[in-house]
C-alpha cells in the first residue's frame, strides 16, 4: 500500500479546494467535482491534450525508429566502431536530464550557440537565428533533446536482443535466398519484438508526462505554445497555488495514460497471470 499512498492522497486532493490559504491554515474543503469542471471547461486544456498526444506519438515513434536503426548499426559495424558507438550512447544516456536541458539551451543559444555558429559557418543564414521563436521550432529542440537521451536505452537493449539470434539463423535465411529486408522480418524482428513492446510502453509513459526538459527549455513558451499536460498541471496548479486543480489535472493524465495503455497493460497483467 505504501507505494500508492501519495497517489491516493492526490486523488483525494483533486476533490478539494486546496489553495495557499487552505494549505497554510490546514483546512480541508471538499468541493466535489468543481476542479474537474473548471479544467474541462478551459478551452486551452483541450489544446494542451491534443498537443501532448501528438508530442508523445512523434517522440515515441522517433525514439523507436532511430533507436532500432542505431541497434542494427551496432550489429553491423566493426568491433572498434561498436565500442566507440556504445561509449557515445552511454555518454548521452548518463547525462542527467537537468544537465542535458541546460546543454541543449546552450547549444541552441541565439547569439552564442554552437548550432547557429556551425550553420552560419556552412554558409547558411543562421546568425542570431532564434530557435525558440515559434512553438514548432521550440518543440523541435525539445524533441531533439528527448529523443537524444532516449535512443541509447532503446538501441542498447535492442542490440542485446539481436545478439540472442545466432549467426546460423541468418545463414539459414541467406541460404533460402532471403534479402536483407526478408532477413530482418523473418529472423530479427521476432527476436526483438517483446523488447520493442516493453520499450514502447515505457516510452509512452515517459514522453507523455515529460516535464524537466519541456519546462527547462522555455517554461512552455513562446506564448504557451509548448505547454504540455505535465506543464499545464504545474502552471495552473502549483504555479498559481491551486493545488486541487493540479491534482485534478494529474488524475486526468493518469486516466488518459491508463486508458491509452489499457490494452497493453491487460496483456501484461495477463501474461503475469499465465506465468504461474
Amino acid at each position: 500500500m505504501l507505494l500508492g499512498w501519495p497517489v491516493v492522497r492526490d486523488v483525494a486532493i483533486s476533490f478539494q479546494r486546496l489553495g495557499l490559504a487552505e494549505l497554510v491554515q490546514r483546512r480541508t474543503v471538499w468541493i466535489g467535482l468543481e476542479n474537474y469542471r473548471e479544467v474541462l471547461a478551459d478551452p486551452f486544456f483541450w489544446t494542451v491534450v491534443l498537443r501532448t498526444v501528438v508530442f508523445t506519438l512523434v517522440n515515441v515513434a522517433l525514439t523507436m525508429v532511430l533507436g532500432l536503426a542505431v541497434a542494427l548499426l551496432l550489429a553491423a559495424v566493426s568491433r572498434a566502431v561498436q565500442i566507440a558507438l556504445s561509449v557515445a550512447l552511454v555518454l548521452a544516456w548518463a547525462v542527467p536530464p537537468i544537465s542535458a536541458t541546460v546543454i541543449f539551451q546552450w547549444l541552441f543559444d541565439t547569439q552564442f550557440g554552437i548550432v547557429n555558429q556551425a550553420l552560419t559557418g556552412l554558409g547558411l543564414d543562421f546568425a542570431d537565428h532564434s530557435w525558440f521563436a515559434t512553438g514548432i521550432s521550440t518543440f523541435g529542440v525539445i524533441t531533439a533533446l528527448v529523443v537524444w537521451q532516449a535512443i541509447p536505452l532503446v538501441a542498447l537493449s535492442l542490440f542485446a536482443s539481436t545478439t540472442a539470434v545466432g549467426p546460423e539463423q541468418y545463414e539459414a535465411a541467406a541460404m533460402d535466398g532471403a534479402g536483407p529486408w526478408r532477413r530482418f522480418t523473418a529472423v530479427t524482428w521476432p527476436a526483438i519484438r517483446p523488447m520493442v513492446l516493453v520499450l514502447t510502453f515505457l516510452s509512452v509513459i515517459w514522453d507523455f508526462k515529460v516535464f524537466t526538459q519541456v519546462y527547462g527549455i522555455r517554461q512552455g513558451g513562446p506564448n504557451r505554445e509548448t505547454v504540455t499536460m505535465a506543464l499545464y498541471a504545474y502552471q495552473q496548479g502549483i504555479g498559481s497555488r491551486e493545488f486541487g486543480t493540479a491534482a485534478a489535472i494529474s488524475v486526468i493524465m493518469m486516466l488518459m495514460l491508463t486508458a491509452g495503455l489499457a490494452w497493453y497493460a491487460r496483456l501484461m497483467v495477463r501474461s503475469a497471470e499465465d506465468e504461474q
Binding site: V7, R9, D10, A230, Y234, I238, S250, M253, M254, T258
Partner: peptide, 16 residues
C-alpha cells in the same frame, strides 16, 4: 496499481 502509479506525473505528487 503499480502500473497506475507509474502513470502519475511526479510534479503533481509534490504537494500530496
Amino acid at each position: 496499481l503499480i502500473i497506475l502509479a507509474q502513470t502519475a506525473p511526479l510534479e503533481a505528487l509534490l504537494i500530496p
